[in-house]
């Protein structure tokens, strides 16, 4: 084979450039820690990465939703727990006052206690989480319960269902589908019942007080039921959160596998390519610039 000057130079130049490019690629991989430095390095992986990142971000968002929902449910549960205790107290008080021991002194004390309970229950009904009123349904911007001086209660909340998204196309209700724990089965408010107790005590009407015991029992049971239903939702939230956490870890490791370089391999590659490049440089420096000219006098 006849080797001309250009063939020699071109082949040297070509292999030097190729070696150098490989060396720079290896350096990039090692420096960035990523296998993909341009989408075209691996188009399929570039597409997959977007999917993984999307999944991870969505799961993080669900978990953020769940965190907020769980916090809200915890506050709700604490409020309802107090309400249940207060209503239980009111029921016991009504039971006592409807019995034989009905004298002015105990009645005055009981009236005081009943008024106190009324206001405490109302405070609880106006509990807030952040700037949202918990029991107002969708009218979450103002206190849902209020009363006048004569203990006539007004409920300005609605039965709006408060939901959070916990997955793609999946949401859960945080307030039992808008169910209002302060409303009796017949549509009256628990405050109306308490007002009857107060009115009965104030007017010495033992029969009216006695008539409220049953309703208050029902109210306590109802709050229990709401708490029970909420507990199931809270458990579901916790379980979903754990599940998403697992999935998030899973996607994160998939992402890392797809996107990150095997550092050991990259370091070995760098060494190998460095050696190859040095060898090419040495070979080039030996061969280029030599001709018969060097040996002619």
């Amino acid at each position: 084979m006849r080797i001309s000057e250009n063939m020699l130079i071109d082949s040297m130049r070509g292999s030097l450039a190729a070696n150098r490019e490989q060396l720079v690629d290896a350096q990039n991989t090692l420096a960035s820690g990523k296998r993909l430095n341009r989408p075209s390095d691996d188009p399929a992986a570039a597409e997959q990465i977007l999917g993984f990142r999307g999944q991870i971000a969505s799961l993080a968002q669900y978990r953020r939703n769940i965190q907020k929902g769980s916090a809200r449910m915890a506050v709700t549960d604490a409020s309802l727990e107090s309400v249940r205790g207060l209503l239980q107290d009111a029921r016991n008080l009504a039971q006592e006052q409807s019995g034989g021991t009905f004298d002015d002194q105990t009645r005055a004390a009981a009236l005081e206690a009943a008024r106190h309970i009324y206001d405490q229950v109302m405070d609880m009904a106006n509990s807030r989480y952040g700037d949202q009123y918990l029991f107002g349904g969708h009218r979450s911007d103002g206190p849902p319960a209020s009363r006048d001086d004569a203990y006539n209660a007004t409920w300005s909340g609605d039965e709006g269902d408060v939901r959070i998204a916990i997955g793609a196309n999946t949401s859960v209700s945080l307030n039992s589908g808008g169910r209002n724990p302060f409303r009796n089965a017949d549509g009256t408010l628990v405050f109306d019942t308490l007002k009857n107790v107060i009115d009965g005590l104030a007017g010495g009407d033992a029969a009216l007080v006695a008539a409220q015991v049953g309703t208050l029992d029902q109210a306590v049971e109802r709050i229990k039921a709401v708490q029970g239903a909420d507990a199931i939702v809270a458990e579901r939230l916790a379980a979903t959160d754990t599940q998403w956490q697992h999935l998030q870890n899973h996607y994160e490791s998939l992402l890392a596998d797809t996107e990150n370089a095997d550092m050991n391999q990259a370091a070995v590659d760098l060494m190998t390519r460095q050696t190859a490049y040095e060898a090419a440089l040495t070979a080039t420096s030996r061969v280029v610039g030599q001709s018969l000219l060097d040996f002619l006098k």
Partner: peptide
Amino acid sequence: ESYRDEVSGVSIDE
């Protein structure tokens, strides 16, 4: 190009 140079390229030695 290398085939071409084999025929047409200049060799300094030559």
